[in-house]
Amino acid sequence: MQVTITVNGLPYTREVEPRLLLVHFLRDELNLTGTHWGCDTSNCGVCTVQLDGVPVKSCTVLAVMADGHEVTTVEGLERDGELDAVQKGFMECHGLQCGFCTPGMLLTARWLLDREPHPDEGTIREAISGQLCRCTGYENIVKSIQRAAEL
């Protein structure tokens, strides 16, 4: 069936099978491979994207369910060549090692800071508790989000 999904501000119309998952629509149809594909069971959170501004795990959303909706991926965080504050925070505080969890972490961090501009450490840890960092780099991820809040 035909769907039109607005991704990072641009509408994309594609013919898809209803069983196509949003993560594969983004990666395989649109070539937006910044969204990673991990456990496939909505546990690890590397596939996290924003659907209508709210973080969701895109391995557990069908592309057809996003028809007519807006999706933001990590590729949509920068504005006019300028990195988002969360991206700068992760750069400055070494918030990534292998980078596999980073896109999802960035989108959740952006959402958190939009709702709560100066979260305490506990709030940050709670917000990212549905996402696994395989390098166990949580200390620096938390610091990166705290830094982003200052930027």
């Binding site: 909505s42 959170g45 996290t48 709210v54 973080p55 969701v56 795990k57 557990t60 959303v61 959740t108 709670e126 917000a127 508790s129 549905g130 996402q131």
Partner: peptide, 9 residues
């Protein structure tokens, strides 16, 4: 229940 991202959906 699950985690904040799952609870969003």
């Amino acid at each position: 229940i699950a985690d904040p991202i799952v609870r969003n959906r």
